[in-house]
Amino acid sequence: MSLFSSSISLRKGISITDEEFVQLRDFIYEKSGIFVDQKRKYLFESRFRKRLQELGLNSFGDYHKFLKFDSSRKEEMIRLFEMITTNETSFYRDTKQLEAFTDKVLSPLVADIRKQGKKDLNIWSAGCSSGEEPYTLAILLFELLGMDAARWNIRINANDISMAMINKAREGVYNDYAMKTTPEAIKKKYFINEAGGLRIKPEVAKLVDFRLMNLNDPLALKRIPRSHIVFCRNVIIYFDEDMKKRVINAFYDNLMPGGYLLLGHSESLHKITKAFKPEFHPGTIAYKKE
């Protein structure tokens, strides 16, 4: 007794040959630095199948050609990047790290800048997904600077490879899941209740500049203004060793002397570079450019 046809199959459409897989994988790696392991071949196949059907293509080889030669290849690349990236994020993600960051990195840094008689602060949020991380950083700054915040010149440069995520970030409206680890007081202070969820207040939003960017584009990386702090969490985990090194070197070049790089909980510079000086705090390692 089954509600399903006895011939129901797991396969839902055309399959990818090993050759096509390698072709596409290399193409994606070349364009984005994201490396898709052979073990994920079937996953890859099912993720792209729908797109192939929409385009009326009969094989993954044809899709590869489409990406290379079709007149709409640029738009297709944007879609492709959306299909290969994931977006697990939330406000105040990894609270322990953020506490350590505020106390041990941000406060001393702000004091230092003040001492120099300046009020400029640049932060780069690389791989910002739908905006939760850069907005969280903006809120942390408001909390730290208080009334003085308005007199500071703060710029948070946030970018992501997915246009859909950049649009969502600019929209700035979030559901409960994005808020799950956000303190109530913060919600009240920095968000406006709307029918569609919570909207980030304009004075916070205006600190953040969202742009579409590919971390595999060396020229684009160079256009980011020099930063005091780089946040790049849960991004390099998708890169292979070589790409990790290139991206981390770009962060190093971008940072001003005395600046800090912060990575995700599951990432470290171990095996990547010794250029930074690691500072160990409960909940995080802050990598300092000396």
């Binding site: 129901i8 797991l10 839902k12």
Partner: peptide
């Protein structure tokens, strides 16, 4: 069907 399928995306469907 959709719910169950999600659990099998990683494995060889053939």
């Amino acid at each position: 069907e959709g719910y169950v399928r999600d659990f099998y995306l990683y494995v060889n469907p053939d």
